[in-house]
Amino acid sequence: MFHLDHLPNPIPGEKLIYCLRRHPITLASLVICMVILLLAPFGIFQYLQIYQPDLLADQAMMTVVLLGGSIFFLYAWLFLFQNFVDWAMDLWIVTNKRILNIEQQGLFGRTASELRIYRIQDVTSSVNGFFHTMFDFGDVEIQTAGERLRFLFEQVPHPNKVAKMIVELAEIDRQAHLDEAVEEIATGEAA
């Protein structure tokens, strides 16, 4: 499993700042649809009990209804779980040294990107829409100087706060790198 205490390729002095996922509200439409689907077999069963009781009085037909309803429910439940797993496994991890972007694509696809925080050039946060504004979630776009030009945090909670923190961390890390470089030059000259 992925441990936040033991990130891959650890950097000395690294501390976890954020571990972000999409806002849970983004699951709302899926959950509502799936709840309707999951309740459908029970609703149909109730309908048949009230309006077609002769159908269910026959044990053979009752068995057919139960077999079909149970399979439908179990597959719908699995589908809901798979979509939840897809949501849960998309992570954006911000430490004081780097940003990790882990995206799950389907069941067997996974992309992990890493960005050293001092390479960040620009951070933009955006909150667009009624529900986004009410629940304060949106996108954070990070422009970099690295191979991958852009990192995008999608629909994360409190994007303005996250963007501000990343900018501050980038400033601190850049200053630390500058200080190290100056010290190395000074040491080299002294030698």
């Binding site: 499993m1 992925f2 069941l107 996974r110």
Partner: peptide, 11 residues
């Protein structure tokens, strides 16, 4: 699904 989730998911 459970194999992938428990292997690669967040502890």
């Amino acid at each position: 699904t459970l194999l992938v989730y428990l292997r690669f998911g967040l502890f």
